[in-house]
């Protein structure tokens, strides 16, 4: 099963992607399922709209929902609603939602997501508020939970990747924006069990990723772990 662990639906600045268009692209590239999260205003303030958008899509698109932690109790209520509606994880964007990953404001939201046994993906790579290493600290604070470094710290935190992933064993890597050799540098250090193929659609692109994959001689086992098995396991996909 080929699973894309990070695509985006909705509209944000020049980026825009509707459910039907994503499905068309998935069909073209033989992608079975995609984990999708909201973007733009539906990620930052209008969480209910964004969550409904990613929840409404049946079995091929699975919802990585989001709430802005500053909404307090109503954010928690919204997460419970999403859990009941079949979401598979939580996405947080500290830079856009306006909090620092280790600030107390995020704790109730994180702990509720963990109580659902959800993986939590953070946007990483934007300096200061979405510092890859700050997200590493969240993972260290909750060693029994699954934390995903969305975008793998792209652009320029690639030099932190191998050692960080070596040290923090509950941290997973989303490949969606990275140059392929930066992903390989992590695989060489820790193996493939915590690597998740993400397309980054509509910002990045299935065709670029699949061409890049062909230029590496990865084993069959590594490819199936990255391209589906790991996602299936951590998002509990049947």
């Amino acid at each position: 099963m080929l699973i894309d662990s990070h695509a985006m639906l909705g509209k944000e600045n020049h980026h825009s992607l509707e459910e039907r268009e994503l499905i068309r692209r998935m069909d073209l590239h033989k992608v079975d399922k995609a984990i999708v999260r909201p973007m733009g205003s539906e990620l930052i303030v209008e969480n209910k709209l964004g969550n409904n958008r990613v929840l409404a899509n049946g079995s091929r698109l699975l919802a990585l929902v989001s709430v802005n932690p500053w909404f307090g109790d109503s954010a928690l209520d919204e997460l419970k609603r999403c859990y009941d509606s079949g979401a598979v994880g939580l996405f947080l964007h500290p830079a856009r939602q306006g909090f620092f990953p280790v600030e107390p404001i995020a704790i109730p939201v994180l702990e509720l997501a963990f109580s659902f046994r959800w993986p939590v993906m953070f946007h990483t790579g934007t300096y200061i508020y979405s510092d890859l290493l700050a997200v590493g600290e969240v993972a260290r604070a909750y060693p029994d939970q699954l934390i995903i470094a969305g975008f793998g710290g792209y652009a320029d935190m690639w030099f932190e990747l191998p050692d960080l992933f070596d040290e923090v064993e509950n941290l997973y890597l989303d490949t969606s924006l990275l140059f392929s050799h930066n992903v390989i540098s992590v695989i060489s250090k820790i193996g493939s069990s915590r690597i998740l193929f993400g397309s980054g659609e509509p910002r990045n692109n299935y065709a670029v990723h699949f061409e890049a994959l062909k230029r590496h001689s990865l084993s069959k086992e590594t490819i199936s772990a990255i391209m589906g098995d790991n996602a299936k396991r951590i998002f509990n996909i049947k």
Partner: peptide, 9 residues
Amino acid sequence: GPKSGEIKF
């Protein structure tokens, strides 16, 4: 550095 979805923009 920019990805496909950004080059058109």
